[in-house]
Amino acid sequence: MSRSDSISRDDLTRLLDVLGRDMRIAGPVKEGRTVDYGISSPDGLLMDDSVSYKSPKEFYFPQAERLMAFGGGTAEEEPASEPFLIFGVRPCDLEGLRILREIFLSGGYSDPFFRRRMENNFIIGLGCVERKEGCFCDKLGIDMRFSDFCDIMLEPDGESYHVEHLSGRGRAALAAVPQTAGVSCGVGRAATAPPPALYLDENADEQRLFGVIDWEEAAFPCRGCGICTFICPTCHCFEFKDSGRDGVISRYRCWDSCMYPRFTLHASGHNPRSARHERYRQRVLHKYLYVRKNTGYTACVGCGRCVRHCPAGMNIKDVAESVMEASR
């Protein structure tokens, strides 16, 4: 680690000031009793080790996104989003964004709204100093200090930060500020984390996993509130809603949650997952098996948000571990 790769907090604020001229800056801010991502001036951003309760996915995949408006014989698509800078994204969340990109942009269809946001965003990652309560990224093969899915990666080093650029945009941004002009490139650097210890065999038989543990007992505490899916960095299910006002219909894409009973309700009235434990099982297996079958990634990054915020004290890590052990 050479000296030029280290920047002080003041220099970091200076860098953000320069970048903030061209784009709006979002990052972790204190909101009453919680920490959330918000639009802020560089001074208002939390640069310590506090973690926001929500994941940064809403900047790419907003909770309610107007896709188009029609009515009165015209239809228009929403214009492209403005450029954004997101500061202080943790390695687990960066890996979560990588999984979302895989889901939204690879395969047969590439989502234009997600893609435009991805192209318009500048990400500054921030490594964790210590593992928080409830976090289990180590079990999923994620380095809590480093991820290369960003433009600039910062690692706290006492009062200053070790900095690396991981994209051309990142390098150009750092070059614009004298204090950070000479930092080195982190491309190709491997994350230092043990291989994932918590995963399901992607060839596992789904029907068998339905029976390896008592899902009813595992899901007993669940109230079906869906907060786990709202704050999860990889949950990505959505529904469409039309909202009419003054003769103009707006079509929104809104987050949905597999924990809601209406999620799978058919128009006929039939519901293939009518029981709560079936919905909980779907959430666990979707994260650990189905996405893995489709993309190769386990769609859980161990950020611990659902563990910390579950009002019924449920722990997806314990459930996934018991499924893994029982299916061996």
Partner: peptide, 15 residues
């Protein structure tokens, strides 16, 4: 209430 699985969790309801 059952035993909690992590210090940050609440005690999960059990039957």
């Amino acid at each position: 209430f059952g035993e909690r699985s992590d210090s940050c969790c609440v005690c999960p309801p059990i039957a």
